[in-house]
Write a protein that binds this DNA or RNA. Structure first.
Lengths: 140, 140
DNA sequence: CATAGAAACGAGTATATACACGCATTTTCA
DNA sequence: TGAAAATGCGTGTATATACTCGTTTCTATG
């Protein structure tokens, strides 16, 4: 029973997304981070101290989705969620351990990027970027 | 706080995947199906009666993932999971209600496909297909 | 300044996804 | 033919994702 090539753009994109996620997760394994966590740490590092909502907007994620991801990172002691000046807010900050994890993951991420660029070729990588951007527009 | 354009292929693909999923889910809403469920019904309809594992392989999903999706569809009375000849197997079959749901979703899905094709243009759609296929190779 | 509305968040619920374990059944082969 | 191997599934656990609802806190306005 062969895996069928679906004619559905959505299913195809979802499959591509899963495949590449697995690829990046494997590449990052030595750092203990998954690609989603890496992207959260990257953004948090850039914006810290930052509220959950602001970080969520930056990342294009739902606030509650990010909240749950942050709790996992907090559990793993990669960041802290302290009350902010505004008592409603929680202020996200990387721990030293979080910084270390990020720095150990970065070169692994870079390598993964490199492998994709090599596999596709620079031209195709650019086209892919444009196509994905066009897709965002086409679904509006 | 603008949503940043990530340089990460993986994150970009994940975002594109989420965006297009939302687009298809919205398009299918009148049928009561989500695009993932539609794709399961479509495959099950084609292969029925079929075991969970065989269907999972066809769809490129993990067996347990599909199992949980099937239970939802069973709960909603869109398909049945009967014991098969081989007592280990569960035989997937659409119910009449499942057939109806599929047939009502199909034109909505077709329209969504159409809109994507229009938004991108036929040429870009083809390139996208090739690129996604190349990606699968590049991540091997 | 008191209160209505807005903003930030958590918890509950739901779907999609996968991995590790374990149980039952079937197959294979010595 | 009887035991080992393979197969098919379910459950437990985990992450990623989003929506709804409710609570707390802040802000703006009459």
């Amino acid at each position: 029973m062969d895996k069928a090539k679906s004619p559905c753009f959505c299913i195809n994109l979802r499959q591509a997304s899963q495949t590449i996620t697995e690829f990046y997760d494997t590449a990052l394994q030595p750092s203990g981070l998954k690609i989603t966590q890496f992207s959260v740490l990257k953004a948090a590092r850039y914006l810290e101290p930052v509220s959950i909502s602001a970080l969520a907007e930056y990342l294009g994620l739902d606030r509650t989705t990010l909240g749950r991801s942050l709790r996992i990172l907090e559990r793993d002691k990669l960041l802290t969620l302290e009350p902010g000046q505004d008592q409603r807010e929680r202020s996200v900050r990387l721990t030293e351990q979080g910084q270390v994890a990020y720095r150990s993951a970065y070169p692994l991420w870079k390598q993964a990027q490199q492998k994709i660029t090599e596999g596709l070729g620079k031209e195709q990588v650019e086209i892919l970027g444009v196509l994905l951007a066009n897709l965002e527009t086409a679904t509006k």
